[in-house]
Simulated scan of single mutants.
Amino acid sequence: MVLHSPAVVPAAECDRYTNESHPHEAGYDSYMAGYVFIRMSHLQTMQGISAQQPVPPRFRRYLEVMRRFQDKVNIIRASIDHICLVGEDPVSRRPQWLYVTLAPSRAATINSAQIAELFSPYGSVDIRPLDGTHFLVAAHSFYCAKDILRAYRSHKLIHVTYYNMWKHSRAVQVLLWTSISVSILGIGWTFLGKSS
């Protein structure tokens, strides 16, 4: 219910689109894309406009208001909320990942869906299992991440902390220890070669 909401009326030969759904039909998909664009444009344009404005905005005004979204593609559940087709992508405004460790006694009894259910009172989360006892959690907001950390600060069976690649990534740890081992072998080989 927005003031001066535009009426979107399909052409006579496409009248069936007003009462029936025809997904993946080219005409219907085009109609729905246009419908959503007009509605979103109107909502954006009418923000902050007084209810006493007697004249509805012209289409040109919609285009001016929507220009800030031009060449930007929305990304769902990613570290950034959109990508720019022209220019630099935005800086990430997502919270840092959470790293969940289960007590060995609970490893077989809790899966990623159950963890998502446990964390759901604090907000929307995405869970990625790493193995039977470790999970990565992407929280939808900083408040959600902080609330989860606070709630599970002293939990006996589920430990939650911020994810640290150097500390928690198995691949990074293997690479680091391999590099250290190769370096030590190289130094030892060089030292033994010089002494003989």
Rank of each mutant, 00 (worst) to 15 (best):
residue 149 L to W: 00
residue 120 S to R: 12
residue 112 S to N: 13
residue 191 F to T: 07
residue 193 G to H: 14
residue 69 F to L: 14
residue 24 H to T: 07
residue 104 P to H: 02
residue 34 G to I: 05
residue 45 T to Y: 03
residue 151 A to W: 00
residue 2 V to A: 08
residue 181 S to R: 07
residue 140 H to M: 05
residue 95 P to Q: 06
residue 64 E to H: 13
residue 38 I to S: 02
residue 53 Q to E: 13
residue 80 I to G: 03
residue 190 T to C: 13
residue 128 R to L: 12
residue 159 H to L: 08
residue 95 P to D: 07
residue 61 R to F: 07
residue 114 Q to R: 11
residue 136 L to G: 00
residue 82 H to R: 02
residue 14 C to D: 13
residue 114 Q to A: 09
residue 148 I to S: 06
residue 118 L to D: 04
residue 79 S to D: 15
residue 40 M to H: 08
residue 169 S to I: 07
residue 152 Y to S: 03
residue 16 R to I: 07
residue 24 H to C: 10
residue 31 Y to H: 06
residue 180 I to C: 08
residue 94 R to E: 15
residue 168 H to I: 03
residue 97 W to V: 03
residue 105 S to R: 12
residue 184 I to W: 06
residue 56 P to H: 04
residue 28 Y to A: 06
residue 111 N to W: 01
residue 182 V to A: 10
residue 8 V to M: 06
residue 177 W to C: 03
residue 83 I to L: 08
residue 46 M to N: 01
residue 1 M to G: 11
residue 81 D to A: 08
residue 90 P to T: 04
residue 185 L to S: 11
residue 165 M to A: 14
residue 179 S to W: 15
residue 59 F to S: 09
residue 45 T to A: 05
residue 108 A to T: 05
residue 37 F to P: 02
residue 117 E to V: 03
residue 38 I to H: 00
residue 134 H to I: 02
residue 28 Y to F: 15
residue 18 T to F: 14
residue 94 R to I: 05
residue 28 Y to E: 07
residue 69 F to M: 09
residue 51 A to H: 05
residue 85 L to Y: 01
residue 1 M to N: 12
residue 181 S to E: 05
residue 87 G to I: 01
residue 36 V to H: 07
residue 6 P to A: 01
residue 23 P to E: 04
residue 17 Y to W: 14
residue 85 L to N: 06
residue 138 A to V: 00
residue 147 D to N: 12
residue 45 T to Q: 07
residue 106 R to D: 05
residue 105 S to P: 06
residue 4 H to C: 06
residue 185 L to P: 01
residue 81 D to C: 06
residue 156 K to E: 10
residue 124 S to M: 09
residue 116 A to V: 05
